[in-house]
Amino acid sequence: MKEEKAAHPSVIRLLEASGVSQEETAKAIDESPQTITNWKKRGVSKAGALKAAAKYAVSANWILKGEATKNEGVTKVLEWDSDTPIDNDEVEIPFYKEVLVSCGSGSLSEMVGNETRKLRLSKSTLRQYGVDASNAYALTAFGDSMSPVINNGATVYVDVGRTNIVDGKIYAISHGGLFKFKYLYRMPKGGVRIVSANKEEYPEDILTAEEIMDQEFSVVAYAFNVQNSLP
Rank of each mutant, 00 (worst) to 15 (best):
E31M: 12
K97N: 10
A138P: 03
R186C: 14
I63Y: 02
G113F: 14
K46W: 03
S10P: 05
A136T: 10
V219L: 06
S145Y: 04
G66E: 11
T163D: 01
P231K: 12
K5N: 10
A57R: 10
L121C: 01
L230D: 05
N152Q: 09
R162S: 12
K41C: 04
G66M: 02
E3P: 05
I86P: 02
P231T: 00
S32P: 01
W39Q: 10
A26V: 01
P188I: 12
V166K: 13
D89A: 04
G19K: 06
K41Y: 09
S122M: 01
F142P: 03
A52I: 00
S59G: 14
L121I: 15
K180W: 04
E16F: 03
N135R: 10
T37F: 06
I170E: 14
D214R: 12
F224T: 06
A154Q: 03
Q22I: 08
E211D: 04
Y171L: 11
M213D: 04
G104M: 03
K40E: 11
V44E: 09
M1I: 07
I93R: 07
E24G: 13
G130C: 00
D87T: 03
I12R: 12
E211Y: 04
I194T: 06
K41W: 03
S21F: 03
F181N: 11
D167I: 08
L108N: 10
V101Y: 06
P9K: 04
E3R: 09
R117F: 03
A53V: 00
L178D: 12
G153R: 00
A60I: 00
V220E: 09
Y171T: 07
L119Q: 10
D30Y: 09
V219Q: 05
G19F: 05
K123R: 15
I29A: 01
I12Y: 04
K46P: 02
E23K: 11
N228P: 11
L207I: 09
K169T: 05
V20D: 11
S134R: 14
S124G: 01
I212G: 01
I150A: 08
T155L: 14
V44D: 02
L15A: 12
G177W: 04
W39R: 06
G113W: 08
M213L: 02
P33F: 03
V74N: 05
M1P: 13
K2S: 12
V219G: 15
F181C: 11
N164Q: 14
S32L: 03
P231W: 06
K182E: 03
D159S: 07
V156M: 08
G43D: 04
P203S: 07
I29T: 07
P94E: 10
G106M: 05
A28W: 00
V131L: 02
E16P: 01
V58C: 14
N164V: 10
K55F: 03
T84D: 05
G191Y: 06
L15P: 15
D83Q: 11
E92N: 02
E110I: 00
A197K: 12
A53M: 10
V11S: 14
E201L: 15
H8C: 02
S107A: 10
R193Q: 12
